[in-house]
Design a protein around this nucleic acid. Sequence first.
DNA 1: CATCGGTGGTGCAAAATCGATCCGGCTGGA
DNA 2: TCCAGCCGGATCGATTTTGCACCACCGATG
Lengths: 298, 298
Amino acid sequence: MIDWDDIRYFLAVARGGSVRAAAEGLGVYHSTVLRRIAQLEERLGAQMFEKLPSGYRLTAAGEEVLELANQMEASSHQLETRVFGRDQSVRGLLRVTLAPTLATHLLMPDLADFACLHPDIEMEIVSSGELANLTNREADVAIRVVYDRKTLPLNLHGLKGPELFGGVYMSCDRLAAWRAGAPDPIRWIVISIHGIPDWASEGEVRTTGVPFRTTDGEAQIVAVRQGLGITTLPCFVGDADPLLVRVPGTDLHMYGTLWLLTQGETRKTKRVRLFTEFVSRRLSAYAPLLAGLPISRD
Amino acid sequence: MIDWDDIRYFLAVARGGSVRAAAEGLGVYHSTVLRRIAQLEERLGAQMFEKLPSGYRLTAAGEEVLELANQMEASSHQLETRVFGRDQSVRGLLRVTLAPTLATHLLMPDLADFACLHPDIEMEIVSSGELANLTNREADVAIRVVYDRKTLPLNLHGLKGPELFGGVYMSCDRLAAWRAGAPDPIRWIVISIHGIPDWASEGEVRTTGVPFRTTDGEAQIVAVRQGLGITTLPCFVGDADPLLVRVPGTDLHMYGTLWLLTQGETRKTKRVRLFTEFVSRRLSAYAPLLAGLPISRD
DNA sequence: CATCGGTGGTGCAAAATCGATCCGGCTGGA
DNA sequence: TCCAGCCGGATCGATTTTGCACCACCGATG
């Protein structure tokens, strides 16, 4: 196998016309160039240059090689400029993964703002049900609700956000009807895989024993809006929904803490830094809402 | 300026998935690869790989580099091919790739003859299990069994050879014993990855349901010689082996067609032309044997 | 004819690279 | 649970490559 770096020396000699001129351009001694060219010719089994007293001149074989050598140089230059360019340029793809509830009920306006602010950043929101794997580079940034800090992957870098509380909610109309003595049963609305959280009490209202199960968080919200019963929701969903109220006599409970997670490599890029700083600021502003503190509605 | 040769190391790691695998392929120690990659990353000012416990994985930057690195490799291969293609002297290297079975059981004497005839040609037989890549200049000439003409690479030049038939064989002794009524079971001997070809019947003999599996063609031949059972073999192997006979009642089946493949640039060289013409003649002479026609033995 | 600025080529010591190990961590199968 | 087989990383002589000085040669020039 030839040494690819010898091609660089070959190009320098072909252009400089002499070993010494090439050496000067390459910043090495001419003897080095001499040896590298000799090595290249030996490995290729052909003379690239005629060794004239006036300098090195390309042979016919050398002319043919020159063409491919130029190609290699072009690729090399392109490689360098691309790597160098990507580091500091804002332009490029940024993939963010977060829970669907966070996206639809809280952060989508902020993501939109960020996209407006940086039109060169191509954004991709990976908001499927499952956790995207940052290590596999399925996403560059993850916004996660972490229940136990110890469950954070060690290889990821975390930026802690505000804490997230949840409560028990029901429809305003249903609550009014219940107070008026409506006989219809009030049911627990739960997401199938979760069940009724142990911290959630029924407060003043009483539910029937048969829960109403949904598979999807969105369906759960629609169901509770319809007055089907009571359910647990993050405060930023329940409090922000004008059709819902907290069930009297129930308490808040901490869901977990929001974390902004990034991966070692990608963390250093400008795009990721811009995004994490932006979202971090917005999350701080949301802290009272997330904590379930009273919010003024207009 | 980056060392172009480091790109070769980069490619090896990107393909091998680990520093050690790359080192193996490059024929150097893994510490060398480690240093070259570190040097490349330092000079480019960007991480090309994520250093995971399970190996090296390309970063986003690395993915972009990979594309250009492949371009450089293509240029390099083309360069080597072109230089080789200009070489009209008989003296020099000639690399031939062919299936191990073809080499050991059929063509080795012919290759030896050719080497004797042209002592100036340094020959290298690349007869590993896997197909050598002519475009990568791993070999100059390939002798292949082609099952479907459409699978021939378009960029290669093909010279069609005789057709190749196979049959079902067993040991003479075992057949005699079976005729004498020996109770020992006769088994199918198959190469693990292939299984029993659908065209192969058991003829007059009956086999037990449990096949005997080998991973290697040579082991398969030894097994059938030992009288372990019956197996499918190319006729040039089975008919030429005095210890083996075709299983009565079985038919021949076409394996494929032999092709002499050469690459565009190298086809013009004297060495390659001499070799292809020589082998082509020898193969024609073998046509009856390859087709499974009766051959006189002496 | 001597000189000067250019060329390629060579020998030797310094410097950089590589080979060869050893080590600790991770993983998957026994 | 342990252990074999991977992996990357660190280290230290040995080897290769490079820097550097020096040489012979050629042609132009005064």
